[in-house]
């Protein structure tokens, strides 16, 4: 464990908590893509099946349980409890265009052709594109609540910090996992234009609104 990975995990946890609290406190999921949240729940489920079979550390296990719990709680709030506030018309990204190619790629390119390893690879590839429905929804509505932009910033920052963690592990532990690195770089690149808007607008106190 290194400071970059720990900060990354805490940034990821912050993002998950921010979103859950935003929906719970405002009793509304306006502007939130339910599809992205379903994809994240799938990412955590397929990646953390090893919860049942292997124990790495208390930190590792507890974080996995928290991530899975929060992900399903968020999906529940969006599609059940506050479904009246769910903006289905703008959450129209065709996720099958993500899940099918990612599933195929996971079967073709992986470290080991075993059930758990292919699911892990699927989860890594899926996570790199899981935010697309959310970014697509913001581009359609042309704006995002400030709290949502903080959620997205923490979420994007987490994988950017993981890239630094992988650089660190390469030099100090001679460890690298090319599948995670390539997917992580793609994932972080997808946030770049959002990062630009976040820094130039939200941090200056303006509302995030895209040129319509």
């Amino acid at each position: 464990m290194n400071i970059f990975r720990l900060t990354g995990d805490l940034s990821h946890l912050a993002a998950i908590i921010i979103l859950l609290l935003k929906i719970w406190k405002t009793r509304s999921c306006a502007g939130i893509s339910g599809k992205s949240q379903i994809l994240f729940a799938i990412v955590f489920t397929t990646r953390y099946l090893d919860l049942l079979s292997s124990f790495i550390s208390l930190y590792n296990t507890s974080m996995k349980v928290i991530y899975i719990g929060c992900a399903y709680a968020t999906v529940y709030l969006i599609y059940m409890k506050f479904r009246a506030t769910y903006d289905g018309n703008h959450d129209s990204f065709r996720v099958e265009f993500l899940v099918v190619p990612v599933g195929g790629l996971a079967v073709l390119i992986n470290h080991d052709f075993s059930f758990l390893e292919i699911l892990w690879t699927f989860s890594i590839y899926l996570e790199s594109v899981a935010i697309l429905p959310q970014l697509f929804m913001i581009s359609k509505t042309g704006e995002a609540e400030t709290i949502t932009t903080h959620y997205l910033f923490c979420l994007g920052l987490y994988r950017a910090l993981y890239i630094v963690n992988w650089i660190w592990r390469y030099y100090f532990e001679a460890f690298f996992d090319l599948i995670a690195i390539v997917a992580g770089v793609v994932q972080t690149i997808l946030y770049c234009d959002f990062f630009y808007l976040y820094v130039t607008k939200v941090l200056k106190g303006k509302k995030l609104s895209l040129p319509a």
Partner: peptide, 10 residues
Amino acid sequence: REFVFQHDEL
């Protein structure tokens, strides 16, 4: 048997 990855990252 080939060493299978023990993924220690979240």
